[in-house]
């Protein structure tokens, strides 16, 4: 474990399991992420990656297993309480507030968010402006979210999650559909976020990005963890190559 400054991991999962009507989507997965660490999560389609993220975010209740956040159990905590504790996330299918401007979208995160957020409207707006600058949306703060293009929506999704000042950030395929230049930008963004002491769980199909980004990589296959470790050795593990890289995605 690479955690040295914080002996207690930010998040720790113990045998997380999700069954949907008899089908096991996530099967007894355990892992932990330390502060300042980026854990990459890869696996073929249907491996259970998003289900795992949803269990951490609280939108899906696990069938079995336990989840600790900074050592405290949060397995049954409602979604908003997890945000107050410091869990932020993006959605694979992005969920902006369509009728609000970019600034208003991010302000919601700043107003609520960790520890209940900044209670003051003015301060929240100021903070939101800062996060929009940080993610490169500074020029579009007054644009309605449903009028933003694809890459800008991703930036917005990112800014919203950051505005709640998370200790743990769950990123579900933020690079899908971006061109190589934009992927590079996002990688720099993620690194900058980590530089602020945030722990990250990054789901990604772009393997090159995962290799460049992650401190550790975990591989799911049919809901089970089949490999975990430093990127280079995991990505050359024959089982991983067979399960994931061997089957070329279209």
């Amino acid at each position: 474990m690479s955690a040295t400054a914080h002996p207690v991991p930010v998040v720790q999962a113990l045998g997380l399991t999700k069954r949907f009507q008899g089908l096991v989507s996530v099967d007894g997965v355990s892992f932990s992420i330390a502060a300042n660490e980026i854990l990459g999560l890869i696996g073929p389609n249907g491996a259970g990656k998003t289900t795992l993220v949803n269990m951490i975010g609280g939108t899906i209740a696990p069938s079995a297993g336990e989840l600790l956040f900074e050592g405290k159990p949060i397995t049954d905590a409602p979604v908003h309480r997890r945000a107050h504790a410091g869990i932020g996330r993006t959605f694979q299918v992005m969920k902006p507030f369509p009728g609000m401007t970019a600034l208003e979208n991010v302000t919601v995160g700043a107003l609520f968010g960790r520890d209940g957020g900044l209670k003051d409207m003015g301060k929240a707006r100021e903070a939101a402006r800062g996060w929009l600058e940080f993610t490169g949306l500074g020029r579009r703060i007054d644009t309605r979210a449903d009028e933003l293009g694809g890459p800008d929506r991703k930036r917005l999704e990112f800014a919203k999650a950051l505005a709640l000042r998370p200790k743990l950030l769950l990123l579900d395929e933020v690079m899908a559909g971006l061109n190589p230049v934009e992927v590079d930008e996002v990688i720099e963004l993620i690194k900058a976020v980590r530089g602020r002491g945030v722990a990250l769980l990054v789901i990604e199909h772009v393997v090159k990005a995962i290799r460049r980004l992650s401190d550790r990589v975990m591989v799911l296959h049919h809901g089970q963890k089949i490999a975990e470790g430093d990127p280079a050795s995991v990505l050359s593990d024959p089982r991983v190559v067979e399960a994931y890289l061997g089957k070329k995605r279209t």
């Binding site: 409602p78 908003h80 902006p96 507030f97 009728g99 995160g109 609520f112 960790r114 929240a124 709640l164």
Partner: peptide
């Protein structure tokens, strides 16, 4: 123009996303 109203509008726009941002 308040935090309360912002929370309500966030719920209207997307309730799941609002909860994720910490709106009870």
């Amino acid at each position: 123009t308040s935090r309360f109203g912002m929370g309500l509008v966030a719920i209207r726009e997307d309730e799941a996303a609002a909860s994720t941002m910490g709106v009870n």
